[in-house]
C-alpha cells in the first residue's frame, strides 16, 4: 500500500508542479498586427518629388556631459577574433567624438511624408563581420532593400536579428561561407542584431519605407537630402540614450539645420 502511494506521490507531485510553471503567454514574436507598417506600396501614390524643389535637413547630435568610457571587448578567448587586427576592439554602445558629438545616431523622418511610397533601390547595403565586430554598428535600409551579410572572420558566426515587426531568423555563417542576402519587408526602428556565438557582437538596423535617414559619423553630423517641401517630425535614435524628436518645416529648395543635444 505504501509502495503504491509513493509511486503516485513522487511523479504526480512533480508533474503537477511542472504543469503549474510551464504556462503563460504565447511566444511574443512576429506580432505583425494591423498597426505594423506594411512594406506594400500605398494604393494611391502621392505626386513624385521634384528634384528641383527638394529641400535638405542637416544638423548634428551634440553630447552634453562626460563621455562614457569605452571598455575593451574581451575576446581573447577566441584567437580567430583577434588574429587579424592588433588593435583592441572597444565597446560601441556610446561613442562620443572629439568634437563632443555623438556617433551612430540614426536620424530619420518619422512623420510627414504621408502616403508616399518608395520602391527599394537595387543597391545593396553591406553588413560585414570583421574581427568579431559588426561593420557598421548602425545601418539603415529601405523596406525590401537587400542586405548583404559577409563573414570576413576565420570563425563561425551566426546572424540573429530580433525584430518585433519582421520575421525573426538565425542563420549560421561558417568561415568562408557565401554572403548571405536578406531583406526586411516591414518598416521597423530599430532591429537589434546579435551573434549568439560571440555575445558582444551587436548591431542595429533601421528599416524605413523611405530613404530619408542618416547616421551620424565621426563628426556627429547628418544630412537628409531630397525631401519634398513640407512639415516633418525628425527623430534621432541612439541605442543607449533613446530617442528625441523635433518638428521642422522646409520650403522649396530650402536647407534647414536641426541640432539635437543628448545629455550623458
Amino acid at each position: 500500500m505504501i509502495r503504491s502511494k509513493l509511486f503516485w506521490m513522487v511523479p504526480l507531485s512533480l508533474t503537477l508542479g511542472l504543469l503549474g510553471c510551464g504556462g503563460g503567454q504565447p511566444p511574443a514574436e512576429q506580432s505583425g498586427g494591423a498597426a505594423a507598417p506594411s512594406a506594400t506600396p500605398a494604393a494611391a501614390p502621392a505626386a513624385p518629388i521634384d528634384p528641383a524643389t527638394a529641400a535638405t535637413i542637416t544638423g548634428k547630435v551634440a553630447f552634453d556631459g562626460t563621455a562614457p568610457a569605452r571598455p575593451r571587448i574581451r575576446m581573447d578567448a577566441v584567437p580567430a577574433c583577434t588574429q587579424r587586427s592588433s588593435e583592441a576592439a572597444l565597446v560601441e554602445e556610446a561613442i562620443v567624438n572629439d568634437n563632443k558629438t555623438l556617433r551612430n545616431v540614426f536620424v530619420y523622418v518619422k512623420e510627414g511624408l504621408g502616403d508616399r511610397s518608395f520602391p527599394p533601390p537595387a543597391e545593396e547595403v553591406v553588413l560585414d563581420q570583421q574581427g568579431c565586430v559588426y561593420h557598421p554598428h548602425v545601418l539603415g535600409l529601405i523596406a525590401g532593400q537587400k542586405l548583404r551579410i559577409k563573414n570576413g572572420d576565420p570563425t563561425n558566426h551566426n546572424i540573429h536579428p530580433m525584430p518585433a515587426q519582421n520575421r525573426e531568423w538565425n542563420t549560421s555563417m561558417p568561415p568562408g561561407a557565401a554572403d548571405l542576402i536578406q531583406e526586411f519587408p516591414r518598416a521597423e526602428v530599430m532591429i537589434p542584431v546579435k551573434c549568439n556565438v560571440h555575445p558582444w557582437m551587436k548591431a542595429y538596423v533601421g528599416v524605413l519605407r523611405h530613404p530619408f535617414f542618416a547616421i551620424t559619423g565621426a563628426d556627429g553630423s547628418f544630412e537628409i537630402k531630397g525631401l519634398p517641401p513640407g512639415s516633418y517630425t525628425i527623430e534621432a535614435w541612439h541605442e543607449k540614450y533613446g530617442t528625441q524628436q523635433m518638428q521642422v518645416t522646409v520650403g522649396e529648395k530650402e536647407s534647414k539645420q536641426v541640432d539635437f543635444t543628448v545629455k550623458g
Binding site: 512533480l14 511542472l18 510553471c21 503563460g24 503567454q25 504565447p26 511566444p27 511574443a28 514574436e29
Partner: peptide, 16 residues
Amino acid sequence: RLPVPVVIAHGCLAQT
C-alpha cells in the same frame, strides 16, 4: 528561437 514558455518549461522539467 527561445520561446519563453518553452524555455521556462525546459528549466522546470530539468529540475523535475
